[in-house]
């Protein structure tokens, strides 16, 4: 594996080919905020919080670091006025759904996000997909998935699968940054017992 040298926030960083910018930064102790990233899961790129600016021989653009592959001589900036502005807005958009989520509150403090920027629509789920992907990629059970699209996208358990697989697993629960997953599960459980009666 060839070694790649890049620069993140002015610091020389060594990385291996095939690594993402986020991985390289984390190894070098540079923190980039994330919500949908998990080391055991395939990169997903949904929350867009880990957005950074790259400069490839004078060619600058914004990319999400959890997906962007490292390259020789890449120059990465993880914080700037613009990046922070985007992150602040992302956090504000999500706070409309899950105003009391601890992860979001921490991020709100860091980026000066206004908890009340948008009208509250507490559906709790922020669509990070951690539960769905963990259940599919790590547990290979596919008990929970996405339904619908656009603004109507939701997570949903498959009751028949959940009734067999979930009761002694629940490994996805601590991954959820809000209470949405547990609520969805409790609802499914209620439905399951209801249909059994």
């Amino acid at each position: 594996m060839s070694e790649i040298l890049l620069k993140i926030d002015g610091k020389e960083v060594k990385a291996r080919e095939g690594m993402t910018v986020l991985e390289a930064a984390q190894r070098a102790g540079i923190s980039i905020p994330t919500l949908c990233h998990h080391e055991k899961l395939e990169p997903y790129g949904a929350c867009r919080l880990c957005i950074v600016e790259i400069d490839m021989r004078g060619w600058k653009k914004l990319v999400v670091s959890c997906l962007y592959p490292v390259a020789q001589d890449l120059v990465v900036t993880t914080k700037s006025e613009k990046i922070n502005r985007i992150r602040k807005m992302i956090v504000e958009l999500l706070l409309a759904h899950a105003p009391d989520a601890f992860d979001l509150q921490d991020l709100a403090r860091e980026y000066g996000a206004d908890r009340d920027r948008f009208e509250k629509e507490s559906s709790f789920c922020i669509h990070c997909g951690l539960c769905v992907r963990y259940c599919a990629e790590v547990k290979k059970k596919h008990a929970v998935g996405f339904v619908n699209r656009g603004a109507n996208r939701e997570i949903s358990f498959i009751p028949e699968v959940a009734s067999k697989e979930c009761w002694n697993c629940k490994e996805c629960f601590p991954l959820c940054p809000t209470e949405a997953l547990q609520a969805a599960y409790v609802l499914t459980e209620a439905l399951m017992s209801h249909t059994r009666q």
Binding site: C47, R48, I86, L93, I126, H127, R149, G150, A151, R153
Partner: peptide, 16 residues
């Protein structure tokens, strides 16, 4: 309506 709903800037941003 036509957004796939995966990423926040599109799903939430254009909704707002």
């Amino acid at each position: 309506d036509e957004s796939c709903g995966k990423c926040v800037p599109c799903r939430e941003g254009i909704r707002q």
